[in-house]
């Protein structure tokens, strides 16, 4: 029943690697040829923080504390996202490294959160989410962050808004 190929581990591995590489080319390499992906939007330029700005440091705090595990940063053109603001475009993420789209919305989406709340609100909310957001909130208290970290984080959150530009 068995043919020769089934006795040759080298041939088998070569064939399997070949199939996988085709998939890698299709899903990772081809997107580099899509203009929507390779062109930064006005919003992206707004989020291109200079190194060591408060926003850049705040983004680092956001990642370090794992905010992204509960808060997505992606508005989709679907009914479940209808109140979240304008849908995200591929080019909006041009300067993000890493991109923080993520996969969970245990808390609300933060793509355009900079439009919604003031700095004072954000500070108070980080210190005690249950008092500000509502007793049923399950967000942890971030009262252990240093003043500097909290200031930076709030600066980053406030910067999350669309560029004031032409309507589409």
């Amino acid at each position: 029943m068995a043919n020769n190929a089934e006795k040759n581990p080298g041939l088998l591995l070569f064939g399997a690697a070949f199939l996988v590489i085709i998939g890698v080319i299709g899903t990772i390499a081809l997107p580099y040829f899509d203009e929507g992906i390779t062109t930064p939007t006005e919003t992206a330029k707004l989020k291109n923080y200079p190194a060591d700005s408060a926003e850049a440091r705040g983004r680092h705090v956001y990642i370090r504390e794992g905010c992204q595990y509960c808060h997505s940063q992606s508005v989709r053109p679907v009914r479940a996202d209808s109140k979240l603001g304008q849908p995200s475009l591929p080019g909006d993420y041009y300067y993000d490294a890493p991109v923080l789209v993520m996969t969970q919305r245990t808390g609300p989406d933060l793509t355009w959160v900079g439009q919604r709340y003031s700095a004072d609100w954000q500070h108070a909310h980080l210190l005690n989410p249950q008092e500000i957001g509502g007793a049923g909130s399950i967000m942890p208290k971030y009262d252990y962050l240093s003043q500097q970290d909290r200031d930076d984080l709030v600066a980053y959150l406030l910067s999350l808004k669309p560029a004031l530009k032409t309507k589409d």
């Binding site: 990772i28 890493p98 789209v101």
Partner: peptide, 17 residues
Amino acid sequence: PAGWAGSGAAQMGYYYF
């Protein structure tokens, strides 16, 4: 590393892969 991949939307290809 995310910074090596260029455009943000292209990086997502690596993550979700």
